[in-house]
Amino acid sequence: MKNFWYLFSAYTIIWTALWAYVVYLSQANRALKQDIEALRAQLDNAIAANDASKKGSV
């Protein structure tokens, strides 16, 4: 099997790169989803606090 290692290296690099990219995308998606949920909760709290302070001042 002459030049087997060249063939092996080429396909290993391709699959490693593609796999790493898929993992990066899924982790980025998950982290962003959590950040968005946390910010939404923070926004709801801030709006509720604003409303409460407006009612208090009236």
Binding site: L25, L32, K33, R40
Partner: peptide, 27 residues
């Protein structure tokens, strides 16, 4: 398949920026 996943990341990053701006305004 990857384009769709990558666009979901881009869309969420944009959504996050908009939300951050709203939170800053509210606070």
């Amino acid at each position: 398949f990857l384009l769709r996943q990558r666009m979901a990341v881009a869309r969420r990053r944009h959504e996050l920026e908009v939300l951050r701006h709203k939170v800053d305004e509210a606070l």
